[in-house]
Structures are given as structure tokens and as C-alpha cells.
């Protein structure tokens, strides 16, 4: 499964939000999008999962243009965890996960044995196997997010688009969720807030700034003190971690290094 975006433009209230965005995610690749607040990450992802319609440009899923695909066909290929997941009515966890089976079902078709197995396995994968009967509204933030992940897993799509899937989660759950996603071997495009998490999991990273793709490349190429300063306007110390062999970023806040002259080696 390959996801490709070509020259995508989007404006809201006559204000250009996305300017000529082109990107691609190869089969099985884990690609991250980083960038400051308001840089257009969520807007870009919303265009990708059709919550918003681009002004111009094309999106391809395995060489097929979105315009030629039905909503249901896209839902069979592309799973999404968005930002707004408030639920006004209470459902048991398993019914939330069962919603993930929707694109595979005909009108009025119920869940058969196979669906129930898929739902059960999805819950097990996120370690929520014994919570199937619980009410969603009474779960903690981390548990809710894992249920949403299970819903996307039950959708059985080869491609995932995720908008900061570990927002508001503690570090344990952040790692757990990304471990599960990484373990799927799916084609993933995810907005990621935490630069160190991005460094640990991403094969490639796109950096967004002011509605454009500012830079792209491997975490090693992208996550440098210079680029981070250009995009986020902060000072950092970046080095390879001896154990993970991945890039590790330490933030150097002004309250500690207010002179800006001290050189950290």
C-alpha cells in the first residue's frame, strides 16, 4: 500500500493553510510529520482522510486517485485516528471496536463469528482484552486511546493515518501504542508531537512550517540542532544514543541557558 500526495493546496476563509504539499509513504514505511502548532499538520491529515476537501492537488492510494474511489473503498484501505474523539453517548468497548468492521459490512449485516474474533484479537493486541464489556466513557485517557487503536486495527487496513495518536498519554502508553503500530508492519503516516518519539519510530520525517513541507528525510538528517532551531525556535543538544542507536534530543531551555553563549559538548 502506497500513499502519495501531489501539489495539494487548501485554504480556509480565503486564507491559504496548505501550500503545494507533496509527499509519499512507501509500502510498510513509518513516516512522521512534525512541526509547530498551527503549521498545518492536522489540516493536511484531514485532507488525507477526506474530512476536508483540497482546493487543488491529487491524493493517490496505490496509484488510484481518491476521486475515483468510493468512501467505503477508502475505508477498507485507510484507517484513521483523528483528534476529535469525544463521544456523546456511552457504548461498551467492544461495540466501539465493532464500528471498525463497518466498511466490510453490507447494510443491516450483523457481526458474524469472524468479526467477533477480529474484534477480540484487536482488543488483545492493545491489552484491553478483559475490558470488552466496560463502558467507554468511564475509561481513562490512555485506555480510550487504546480502544480507538483497537477500532482501527479491527478495520484491517494496510494504511494508517494518525493525528498525534498518543496525545495526552503518559510515556508508558505512548511507547506501548507506537510499539503496537510499528509491529503491524503497516504503511503509516502520523503527526507526532514529541521529537524523541519521532526519532525512535520513524523511518522518515516530514517537517512542516507555515503550511509547507520545510524539509524531509531520515530522522538523522532532519533532527539536527540547526533544523530544530529554524522550525521550533528552541535550543537543543542532539546526539546518538549509545543503546538505541537513534537520535536523541535534549532541550536546552532559556531559563537554564539564558545567555545562549555556553557551548554544551
Amino acid at each position: 500500500m502506497k500513499l502519495q500526495v501531489e501539489n495539494l493546496n487548501f485554504s480556509y476563509n480565503h486564507q491559504k493553510i496548505l501550500k503545494d504539499i507533496s509527499l509519499h509513504v512507501a509500502n510498510g514505511e513509518f513516516v512522521g510529520i512534525i512541526g509547530p502548532n498551527g503549521s498545518g499538520k492536522s489540516t493536511l491529515l484531514k485532507n488525507l482522510y477526506r474530512a476536508l476537501t483540497p482546493d487543488s492537488g491529487s491524493i493517490y492510494l496505490d496509484q488510484q486517485n481518491y476521486r475515483d474511489l468510493k468512501v467505503k473503498e477508502i475505508a477498507k484501505k485507510l484507517g484513521v485516528i483523528g483528534q476529535d474523539n469525544a463521544l456523546p453517548f456511552d457504548f461498551p468497548v467492544k461495540e466501539i471496536v465493532a464500528m471498525g468492521r463497518s466498511p466490510h459490512k453490507k447494510l443491516f449485516e450483523g457481526d458474524n463469528k469472524e468479526d467477533k474474533e477480529i474484534i477480540e484479537n484487536a482488543l488483545k493486541k492493545v491489552e484491553m482484552g478483559d475490558m470488552a464489556e466496560r463502558n467507554y466513557l468511564y475509561l481513562s485517557g490512555g485506555e480510550k486511546q487504546r480502544v480507538l487503536l483497537a477500532r482501527v486495527l479491527a478495520q484491517q487496513t494496510e494504511c494508517l493515518v494518525l493525528d498525534e495518536p498518543t496525545n495526552h498519554l503518559d510515556i508508558h502508553h505512548q511507547l506501548r501504542i507506537f510499539d503496537v503500530i510499528k509491529g503491524l508492519g503497516a504503511t503509516v503516516l502520523s503527526a507526532i508531537h514529541d521529537l524523541n518519539i519521532a526519532a525512535l519510530y520513524c523511518d522518515r520525517i516530514y517537517v512542516m512550517k507555515d503550511g509547507t513541507i520545510y524539509k524531509s528525510g531520515t530522522p538523522e538528517d532532519i533532527l539536527t540542532s540547526k533544523t530544530i532551531h529554524e522550525v521550533f525556535n528552541i535550543k537543543t543538544d542532539v546526539r546518538r544514543h549509545p543503546v538505541t542507536k537513534k537520535v536523541m534530543i535534549t532541550y536546552l531551555p532559556e531559563s537554564i541557558f539564558n545567555k545562549g553563549e555556553e557551548k554544551v559538548v
Binding site: 477498507k76 484507517g79 484513521v80 463521544l87 466501539i96 447494510l107
Partner: peptide, 24 residues
Amino acid sequence: LLINYRALNALLAGDETAGTLGFN
């Protein structure tokens, strides 16, 4: 309504989510 019961369930999870689950 009954033949569309899945769509109604998905709609409670929000317009965007219902869209990503394959409903128009």
C-alpha cells in the same frame, strides 16, 4: 433506519470518524 444502524452508531462518534469508517 434499521438497515443503516451501523451508520447511525458511527455518526455518534462524529462526522469525521463516520467518514473514515466508510459512510457517506
